[in-house]
Design a protein around this nucleic acid. Structure first.
Length: 107
DNA sequence: AGTCGCCACGAAG
DNA sequence: CTTCGTGGCGACT
């Protein structure tokens, strides 16, 4: 079930250009809420699995999150390499200079 | 329809 | 590191 809320989350995510990352908090706040958990839950349950760059979403401190740590079998680990091609370097599960790549939805 | 549990988090202690 | 708060969704009742 793709609710309007989730739809907005994915739409916002697609709004993020390659080589940039966004945070759960800013993303959530842009949706009018103040909880990133809903974002994480929506991303985890994302019905648009490969269509949504979930890996492009990070925590407020630049941490990738638990999408690969929580699910060690996640195939997105390969996408991490792709992100490096986009200019996003991932080291120790963190985005290098993530704040420099940080993309906020400040409309 | 109401309630409980869940979530890849954030902030505070 | 640990605990509480938060906002929404899923499932059960």
């Amino acid at each position: 079930m793709v609710t309007a809320f989730q739809q907005k989350v994915y739409d916002k995510l697609l709004e993020v250009p390659a080589g940039r990352v966004t945070t759960y908090r800013d993303l959530a706040h842009s949706l009018g809420i103040n909880s990133s958990q809903a974002i994480g839950q929506a991303l985890k349950r994302n019905p648009f699995a490969p269509r949504v760059p979930c890996h492009r979403v990070v925590s407020s401190n630049g941490s990738i999150g638990g999408y690969m740590g929580a699910v060690e079998g996640s195939p997105i680990a390969k996408k991490i390499d792709l992100l490096k091609k986009e200019g996003i370097n991932i080291v120790d599960g963190k985005v290098v200079d993530f704040e420099l790549q940080l993309f906020t939805f400040r409309t």
